[in-house]
Amino acid sequence: MIDPFGRSITYLRVSVTDRCDLRCTYCMSEKMTFLPKRDLLTLEELDRLATAFILKGVRKLRITGGEPLVRRDVLSLIDNLSRHLETGALEEITLTTNGTQLRQHAARLARAGVRRLNVSIDSLVADTYARITRGGDLGGVLDGIKAANDEGMAIKINAVALKNDNANELADMVAWAHSEGHDFTVIEAMPMGEISEDRYDQYLPLSLVREGFETRWTLTPLAHRTGGPARYVRVEETGGQLGFITPLTHNFCEGCNRVRLTCTGQLYMCLGQQDKADLRAVLRQEGATDAMLAAAIDDAIARKPKGHDFVIDRPGSAPAVPRHMSTTGG
């Protein structure tokens, strides 16, 4: 699949649910209204759509949410999709998780061939973590990370930079992650969805975060790419890898190789745009064939835009994209 700007689309992120067991302040409203279960794709439909993309050249599949591990029987979906790893059609299946359910599911994920996880943690101070997540248990998440690590999975810690919550803690979080053998990526807050707080008050440019890191460490740029938006450096003093995802201070669109499929079968060609293709409608047509699905995917890829429209430019401004991140998939 080649988009209008010559980019090869080899990476699909599949959201299996919009639900989450946390309510992070920068991501969700405290009282969320989630989709009725009848609107969600079945696990069989998710499998069929993911397989259609794999047949068209997707080599990396990431399972996301919401929190993917809160969906009932989602492990059976991952088990089934692992057949594409066995045939070599797919290079890897990865998972983005908040870690709350990881302790009980790590062993089965490993058996299904999941070798890498992204775990979101925005503070290593229990009270701060609980406040950001509106009630999350940091200890349980850390136990889950240990369980995954014991199963041989590589862990990358993701943290959103929040000016009023974790700005003074980010360097210590990097040091902790590297001491545990984990990579670390810091992310600028993205203007998606209506939340109770003002993102402008929390917005922290990663250019400032990086300047702070450089007073403590020597950062050596790396050519390493994972197919994602992060730009990586090596922290010489720790030997660990550090990533920066900067949708606002440095547009990351030029090398975009991904599309996102929601739990309702909507295909978003860009995280920061509203255009979408309704693959559920195609899938549920009477007599829908694989050829029809392939044609709908081709039509959607032909509309992939050059870049996003993210901006946080003034206090109280409306989000650049009205849907919540949990709707599209993290």
Rank of each mutant, 00 (worst) to 15 (best):
Q285S: 15
G243H: 00
T133L: 07
I187M: 10
Q266L: 15
D313W: 04
D183R: 14
L222R: 13
S179W: 01
R103K: 15
S8D: 05
L61N: 06
R62E: 11
A159V: 13
A171C: 12
K304H: 04
Y26L: 14
I157W: 06
T246V: 02
T97G: 08
E236I: 05
R111L: 13
L222K: 08
L35R: 11
L95Q: 03
R13D: 04
Y129E: 03
L40E: 12
T128S: 14
D79I: 01
D39F: 10
G316K: 07
E86M: 06
D165C: 06
E236T: 14
G6R: 08
D127Q: 14
D201L: 12
L206I: 09
A89F: 02
T94F: 00
N164L: 15
N168A: 15
Q104F: 04
A107C: 08
N257S: 15
G255K: 11
S317D: 09
P68T: 03
E236Y: 01
I2E: 08
M173V: 09
N118M: 03
T133S: 14
H224L: 12
A291G: 00
A189L: 12
T96M: 04
R111S: 12
G99E: 05
C20R: 00
V141L: 07
A300G: 11
T238P: 08
I155C: 10
K37E: 13
P305N: 07
D299I: 10
K31R: 15
D3W: 04
L162R: 05
R62M: 10
D309M: 11
R199L: 15
A126S: 13
Y200G: 05
R23D: 02
E44H: 09
R48K: 10
L77C: 02
P221V: 05
R216T: 01
R108H: 11
I157N: 09
N168Y: 01
R48V: 01
Y268Q: 08
V259E: 09
A171Q: 07
V160Y: 06
A295R: 12
T220R: 13
D165H: 14
Y203S: 02
G240N: 08
V259H: 11
T100Q: 08
L117C: 06
P4Y: 01
L49A: 07
V74W: 07
R323Q: 12
I145C: 13
L170D: 03
D183V: 11
R225S: 14
L117F: 05
D165I: 02
A126F: 05
I9G: 11
F252D: 11
P68K: 06
N80K: 15
D275H: 10
G139C: 05
G243E: 01
M153N: 10
A294F: 10
I54D: 13
G287K: 06
K306Q: 13
L85P: 05
D47Q: 13
A320S: 15
R280Q: 12
R48W: 03
T96N: 07
M153V: 02
A291K: 03
G88S: 10
A223Y: 00
